[in-house]
């Protein structure tokens, strides 16, 4: 038996199909979820994929955050269901305040699309258990609103509690404070990051590496061992 991972599609989502594919490659069942549907179809975890939901109108993630599907996702995330937000999905998670801080325009104002080296700082979350703390991975980064900001107190708290999950290596691509590429909530079930693990799961495409696959195998192990 395997576990069911929901992948949400908002109007303007781009990476839902790649994310579904990554979920399947890891051995999980991918369940498409629609933004207007509150029903999560009994999934065990949810991924909010990348793109430009609602055209990024107002702020990236600001309108998606109030969609019917997110009502249930927020409720379930608070009850412990694993949720991963990638890129636009990370922006949605900060807008919901499930994760602290906010995402702003890159400090150089350019859209970035490149392979990005990261260090996995926290390998104890639901989505990172298949990595080792300190492991360096390379996965694609592609965004214009990728600058992570939070007040100093929040940043200090994140650092002290080990909640900086990923940090940029070899140069900060967007002005994110303390080189933060991704963070986790205190319980470790909600994780968000700007780079795209779902684009690095097969050797033939993307980076030519499979450094992103660990996100999906991590959640597989967690869900299957829990059932």
């Amino acid at each position: 038996m395997t576990a069911r991972v929901g992948v949400v599609t908002f109007p303007g989502t781009l990476d839902d199909r790649d994310t579904q594919r990554a979920v399947r490659i890891a051995g999980l069942e991918a369940v498409p979820l629609w933004h207007r549907d509150k029903d999560l179809k009994q999934v065990d975890a949810v991924v909010l994929p990348g793109g430009f939901s609602y055209g990024d109108y107002l702020r990236a993630g600001a309108i998606s955050r109030f969609s019917p599907v997110m009502e249930t996702v927020i409720e379930q995330a608070k009850a412990g269901m694993p949720v991963l937000g990638i890129c636009n999905g990370f922006q949605v998670l900060t807008e919901t305040h499930l994760l602290p801080g906010a995402m702003l325009r890159n400090n150089h104002l350019h859209f970035i699309c490149r392979d990005q080296k990261l260090r996995v700082e926290n390998a104890a979350t639901a989505w990172t258990a298949d990595y080792e703390a300190g492991q360096e991975i390379s996965i694609p980064l592609k965004n214009i609103d990728g600058r992570y900001v939070a007040d100093e107190r929040t940043l200090d708290e994140l650092e002290a509690e080990g909640r900086v999950a990923f940090r940029y290596l070899d140069g900060n691509p967007n002005g994110s404070l303390r080189d933060i590429a991704g963070i986790t909530n205190a319980a470790g079930n909600v994780v968000g990051l700007m780079p795209h693990p779902e684009h690095a799961v097969e050797p033939l495409v993307g980076t030519g590496r499979t450094d992103g696959l660990g996100f999906f195998t991590s959640i597989l192990k967690k869900l299957v061992s829990a059932s």
Binding site: L104, H108, L109, V149, G175
Partner: peptide, 11 residues
């Protein structure tokens, strides 16, 4: 005020 505004700076 404490948040960097690169768009304002570009203008």
């Amino acid at each position: 005020p404490e948040i960097l505004d690169p768009q304002g700076q570009a203008v």
